[in-house]
């Protein structure tokens, strides 16, 4: 059965600038911090400012061309998760920096996986999760994102694929929204337009 997504799901955009604007609006609703930078060097500068502002003590990341370049600029020690790590140490870092599979304009979500985000815990255990994405990673809607997961990985799927929409939250006490229930209190998404 094929689903008539075009006429069912919330409206979205397909042109790049419109997609970015929609993503920015959705992020604002979700209290995700969304930042657009032009060059890779600017990511480093931005992270450096965050490090000072939030008084980072250490960070954690995994190796990709984009994270490697960006993490160099952060003046605190970095725990790399690629070859395994101690959970106790990851629990202590101030922030984590990961890649992703896609950004979804329709909902302001990030699609990530154990393969593109340095394993399972890196994107959920530290209190501030920072996602780095490139221009070609933004997609219009959820159906495109799931189709992409199949096309990209089938049949060798990563052991975990997670659609992340905003920082961790709960409403379990009197249905009042509280951020940072068990996962990250802050979610920052940095989109670099020219790589």
């Amino acid at each position: 059965m094929t689903i008539d997504f075009q006429n069912i799901l919330p409206k979205t955009e397909t042109e790049y600038t419109a997609m970015v604007n929609l993503f920015a609006n959705k992020s604002a609703d979700l209290t995700t911090r969304f930042v657009k930078v032009f060059t890779q060097r600017e990511i480093g500068l931005y992270l450096n400012t965050l490090a000072t502002q939030e008084k980072w003590v250490s960070i954690a990341s995994h190796h990709t061309p984009l994270t490697d370049e960006s993490v160099i600029a952060v003046p605190v020690p970095c725990l790399w998760t690629d070859q395994g790590y101690k959970i106790e140490e990851l629990e202590k870092v101030s922030a984590s920096i990961t890649g992703c599979d896609a950004l979804i304009a329709q909902t302001g979500s990030v699609m990530l996986s154990s393969r593109t985000a340095g394993g399972r815990a890196l994107s959920i255990l530290p209190p501030h999760h920072i996602v780095l994405a490139t221009k070609n990673q933004i997609v219009p809607d959820l159906p495109t994102a799931y189709r992409m997961i199949r096309e990209k990985y089938s049949p060798n799927y990563p052991s975990m694929v997670s659609l992340v929409t905003g920082p961790s939250r709960t409403g379990d006490i009197e249905r009042i929204l509280v951020l940072g229930a068990h996962g990250p209190r802050k979610l920052t998404i940095i989109l670099v337009e020219e790589v």
Partner: peptide, 20 residues
């Protein structure tokens, strides 16, 4: 519109993955 995490698990940690 969506909950914060919608996660798919396809098996245990794979050999090339660092955790799980």
């Amino acid at each position: 519109n969506l909950t914060a995490y919608n996660t798919l698990y396809s098996g245990p940690k794979r050999p090339e993955e660092p955790d799980g």
